[in-house]
Design a protein around this nucleic acid. Structure first.
Length: 418
DNA sequence: TCTGGGGTCCTAGGACCC
DNA sequence: TCTGGGGTCCTAGGACCC
């Protein structure tokens, strides 16, 4: 018998901040998105006083945050990534079959664990992660991935661990579990199911017209239905190379000129091509976009365009040039640009790359990229960069409340008073 | 009057996730 | 003044082939 366990960190970003700031434990904390744009993580103390709506704009919350003395942080992804790695390393001790699902979640598979006391094992996982990393987690165990997600939600509402492996206990929970909270059922699908009179997970599980589900929710929805029935359709997946990647940002202030957009795009292209080289891949096509702000009452423009390479590449300079060429085609003057990005598509492993017909060798600045990556790794990001990235970078993201890189930078270690 | 059948590949768009 | 970033999977429909 196979069992699936979902471990999910509680208010992960907030918890990471609290590990290094004991004085805010037990206090309401909020972490903001890039650009300090909106709130994306809340502690339970913050939720208790009415915060918690994902992506609510920060400027609309400011008064209430002040009133309740909520501690606010800009997001510090360097710190969160490192804390995430510590959590995952700890979880790996409990089973080799582990899938890192996101920065703060992992699926664990237990096979041949039938004689285990899962209640006890779950508590052990919790206390081990807490003592090794300082991060509190919830643990849900059941017989499929979808059910373990539901068990995890139950765990959060209760003591932190929830086991449901017997048919009767599962049905008991599903009868009170809203359809919209099921993993994989989003807003649209929930509406479709509601019109069929399906409101709870149990009603979905026992709905007999499978062909109709297939038609309305496609294969994805059908698999969720089977998983609710205890039939495992989704398995633990091992990490694979990204099939698409990219880099994009909202600007700290509006951008009007093509020159500034070129700088920003050069920056995104540099970042995206580095990601590509890290996974030893090349891409055959690139697309860029430039947007105005949909929230502002100004003339709107959503430009996008694409470039195909004749041979796969991961060369920063080539990718910057291509991005600029596309910008020349899609740029329209007179708009107030707020966001832009570079996306790399049709990615294949580098060793499966093909020369084009008229090329005798790959002209890809391979050595140059290698050396630049090495220097930037040793001396910090952006030590060496293309001049196309510019120096003023007025479009740069705003982050007014950022914590230190406690775990990854010698200069930013936690100071303990003598 | 009456215009094939079967297949593959690619892409855009929709939906969902954290 | 002020609204995130990075992904995945599925399907329909068009282009193209013999």
């Amino acid at each position: 018998m196979k069992y699936f366990c979902l471990v999910d960190c509680n208010s992960f970003y907030c918890s990471c901040e609290r590990v290094w700031r004991p004085e805010i434990r037990g206090k309401p904390v909020i972490v903001l998105s890039n650009n300090d744009g909106c709130a994306i993580a809340f502690t339970k103390e913050a939720k208790a006083i009415g915060f918690g709506q994902m992506c609510e704009p920060y400027f609309q919350l400011k008064d209430r945050i002040k009133k309740y003395k909520v501690k606010v942080f800009s997001s510090n992804y360097t710190l969160y990534d490192n804390m995430s790695k510590r959590v995952m390393d700890t979880l790996r001790q409990f089973t080799p079959d582990l899938e890192i699902y996101s920065v703060d979640e992992a699926f664990l598979q237990f096979e041949g664990f039938d004689h285990y006391d899962f209640e006890k094992y779950g508590k052990e996982i919790r206390s081990e992660v807490l003592s090794a990393t300082g991060i509190p987690v919830g643990v849900g165990i059941s017989t499929t991935k979808v059910l373990s997600k539901i068990a995890n939600k139950m765990a959060k509402k209760n003591s932190g661990v929830w086991i449901m492996t017997k048919a009767a206990e599962i049905d008991q929970v599903l009868k009170n579990f809203p359809i919209k909270d099921i993993w994989g059922i989003g807003h649209r699908s929930a509406i479709k199911l509601n019109t069929l009179g399906i409101k709870t997970a149990y009603e979905f599980k026992t709905f007999k017209n499978e062909a109709l589900i297939q038609k309305l929710l496609t294969k994805t929805g059908r698999e969720i239905q089977e998983e609710l029935r205890g039939v495992s359709c989704l398995s633990i997946e091992s990490p694979e190379d990204k099939k698409n990647t990219g880099s994009s940002r909202s600007f700290g202030q509006p951008v009007y000129s093509k020159g500034e957009l070129k700088e920003a795009l050069a920056h995104f292209a540099t970042h995206a091509s580095l990601k590509l080289r890290r996974q030893k891949s090349v891409c055959f096509s690139l697309s860029i976009f430039i947007h105005t702000s949909p929230f502002k009452e100004v003339p709107q423009y959503f430009g996008e365009g694409r470039y195909n390479f004749s041979t796969g590449t991961s060369d920063t300079l080539k990718i910057i040039r291509a991005a600029h060429e596309v910008l020349d085609e899609i740029y329209r003057p007179g708009f107030e640009y707020k966001k832009a990005g570079v996306l790399l598509n049709h990615i294949v492993p580098k060793n499966e790359n093909q020369l084009d017909l008229f090329q005798s060798h790959l002209d890809d600045n391979e050595k140059l990229n290698e050396v630049v990556d090495l220097i930037n790794k040793k001396y910090g990001d952006h030590t060496i960069k293309s001049a196309a990235c510019g120096v003023s970078q007025d479009w740069k993201t705003v982050a007014n409340y950022k914590s230190q890189k406690y775990t990854t930078n010698w200069k930013e270690l936690l100071k303990v008073k003598p």
